[in-house]
Design a protein around this nucleic acid. Sequence first.
RNA 1: UCGGGGAUCGUCUAAUGGCAGGACGUCAGACUCUGGAUCUGACUAUCAAGGUUCGAAUCCUUGUCCCCGAACCA
Length: 775
Amino acid sequence: MADERTDFIRDIIDDDLRTGKHGGRVLTRFPPEPNGYLHIGHAKSICLNFGIAQQYGTRCNLRFDDTNPVKEDVEYVDSIQADIQWLGFSFGGVALYASDYFEEMYALCEDLIRDGKAYVCELTDEQIKEYRGTLTEPGRPSPWRDRPVEDSLARFRDMRGGALADGACVVRAKIDMASANMKMRDPLLYRIRHAHHHRTGDAWCIYPMYDYAHPISDAIEGITHSICTLEFENNRELYDWVVEHTRVSERHGFSRPQQIEFARLALDYTVMSKRKLLTLVVDHHVAGWDDPRMPTIAGMRRRGYSAEAIRAFAELVGVAKANSVVDIGKLEYCVRDDLNRTAPRVMGVVRPLKLTITSYGDDTVESFDAPYFPADVGKPGSRPLPFSRTLWIERDDFAQDPPADYQRLAPGRTVRLRHAYCVTCEDVVEQDGEVVEVRCRHLPDTIGKNPAGEKVWGVIHWVSAAHALDAEVRLYDRLFKDPRPEDAGGDFLGNLNPASLEVVAGAKLEASLAGAAPGSRWQLERVGYFAVDPVDSRPDALVLNRIVTLRDSWASKADAATAPAADAPREKSAKAKTRPPRRSKAEYRAEARVRDPALAAAYDRLQQVHGLAEGDADVLTGDAALVSFFDAAIDVAGAAPAAVARWMTNELSGVLGERPVTESPMRAAQFGRFVVMAESGTITRPVAKQLLEQLVARGGEPEALVAQLGLAAAADDGAIAAIVDEVLAGNAAKVEQYRGGKLGLLGFFVGQVVKASKGAADPQRVQELLKEKLS
RNA sequence: UCGGGGAUCGUCUAAUGGCAGGACGUCAGACUCUGGAUCUGACUAUCAAGGUUCGAAUCCUUGUCCCCGAACCA
């Protein structure tokens, strides 16, 4: 893979490819429900799934998860396809639909019922909820749980037949009403919905639930890595259950798909939930799904964001499992970075102020050739720029009483008119205390060169009044005032930014923009990037959307005076408040000792007879298996209880992870002998740790395993010194740095020597030698 | 009978027991016919405490904080 970009999901795929888990295949999918428009969060997921497909040379399926007809609509399936294609990804032109698998899903469900793994439940929804139990209490089995298979089957067919009303009954998987995972407490598989489906019409009146339909769809298509967001972590167990018990993968000749969860994208100053976006649209807080302030792909497209910029953003934010909120400035950075390279520069004045060049002929018109791109962008192209006596300049570019550091026009000052002459302000015309005209003299010999002996305060943009095009300019800003509109307390609608859209009617644009294509993107020099609105703009009445401002070090300096308000302490989510506190592992161990006097006795004995610290004794006496493992291990001649305890708590538990000791083929006596060997110094610690891992994985006699694996005995000083010299010689630059004070490099050298010796060099000795030689 | 995840510069993200790195941002400077771009430099982090280890962001223990789960939604 030429692409060095990596993340934990690609790591998993690489591992699977190495181990041949899916027979070397990679197949992803993007599974939107057609119940809303795609947003920037989906764009991240699309870039991930389709990006992986591109990178690994395979395909990503677009599959509509259309299992709930009451919420779904063809408007959404059309917009979703258009958005994905616009983003630059291809799904072979053919979208897939979960609804295409309804028949097979139905058959599989009949099989499940026949196998006694599902049943039709006639409880009402309130009863089902009641029977399900709570987070801290187990559920109770439905009275229908053990009804005869034939009974369920007949009833399931009745459900499909259409005679039953919505909610009359459901089919449920028969799993475990006492599972700690609520998702496994006999989850619903099918419900009755007499509703018209956008694709299957009225062919069905029962529809599968997500947790049933999704894994089956993946398995039918042969998806290998089913990538979804974090909130589905609890669903993974059920996903696996469905795939396993329906044997759908095997039926289609595929390996079983694997669900992987990553953190969804959250962005500052916006909302991302479909429900909230729908509210904004339906209640007309915005002009529609494609309102340029919306974080939807359609909105960003209309605003003028390019697909390249959005893809670059997806790459910039990366993929991980930690919940995070991305600074919207990063999106803006990507948009600017793209536009800087692609948007031609033209001039336009948003808030015009008249500038008259008194020294310039009344009827004189000159034309200057102005390049579309600055030299550093290096793209060809230019346009003629008409220049005349009366110009429009930006109101902000003139100040009667200029603040410090002001680099623009002011009385008596000379500035450059971009691409044209330098002018000196000699007079202003005021009306009602407001400047309505600036009168200047031009410096004739300043085309392409600076005036001699005259300070040029800056460069400002302008438009010839006689040649100017009138335009409407829409200045867009963040939709919300608060960086976290959803949890600033109260309704997110209360946080809408009233200044998110400012429409300026009388803007003046240079003549060359006359034929600007709808959707085309331009930089109005010194003002910002703009796109011709594809909906409202007319050739004779241009409408420009501000895509993003220019980065503005002047404005940010000015803003610095208005200090940012301290963030209000965040409030817990409503759900978090109602969650019961969790008990710790220590509490569980203490409870176990209360229940089991033998454990309590062991806890005392380990401390009093074997001299263990209280903490070690505690950790080792949480369950009987651990205690007997410890006791058997210290039975080995020479195995010091303290050493055994240390290796057990610090190293063995790390190697075992969540597995209990009893699951390893390694016997306690073997472990005891391992500890003796590790402590004796005949092998180094790095070798000991390798050995432990092997022992845990396959069991066996430690002494024999050392020989079998070719693990090295501890090397003598002379041998170590030789390797140390070698490593030092091979890393001259680092040695230099180390001597220069970068002492952190010592660890690097130790690591290199230990690795070169294949573990035979005792690191402590290596370190001593290294310090000697490097001093 | 609660379970599943997570915590590294202000922000996002790397480092899979061995040099805490990159990007955004911020600040300073250079350059500039855009207060743009570019370039240079600086800035700032391992949630906390204990332990294991020659060496810990990484392993162990304890604690803190955050997110998810009790729709016939996805």
